[in-house]
Amino acid sequence: MNNSTAIASILLAGILTNNMVLSKFLGICPFLGVSKKVNTAFSMSIAVTLVMVVASAVTWPIYHYLLMPNYTYLETIVFILVIAAIVQFIEIFLKRFIKPVYNALGIYLPLITTNCAVLGITQINTANQLDFVRSMINALGAGLGFMLAMLLFSGVRERLETANIPEFLKGLPITLISAALVSLSFLGFAGIGG
């Protein structure tokens, strides 16, 4: 397998096969919380993708040059620390220099500070021993996969608003049921791209 096909397969696997939300069940909180409208879901996914890529770029050298080979057990706690700091820094940076982006991302950026999908992707990178470029591609794929799941599901939820749902299933129950069905449909991708 040459380089570009490998990269394409990592990207595709991140979006479809190993979808962050629908296959790995990480980042369920924003998936259920911010998916009521397509626009907000889109803003949230952009923020998640951005933070995933930046977090992967920063945690990779930390893991490979600081924690390897003796302190790999510190991975989780160090990553949490670093990701929280990065998100805060990105927020300050955007507020100062790119105000429109800051306004567009709004509340979603600080919300991601403690998002398990972001921590998850950095740990998946180290667990799979990906090199730097592949880590970035993997993070980008996972972010796009998150976006795909969010957009699909917010579409479903906008339909649910007008659907005639039995009284006892209204609200969260029907949301969880439809999330399960969407997740089930992604099971069909298993085996593609490896």
Partner: peptide, 23 residues
Amino acid sequence: ILLAVIGLIAGIGLSLASKFMAV
């Protein structure tokens, strides 16, 4: 020590950033 240093660097970095990039 490793953890404390990383935390310290992140903390100092953020406080500097919030000072110099304050809006």
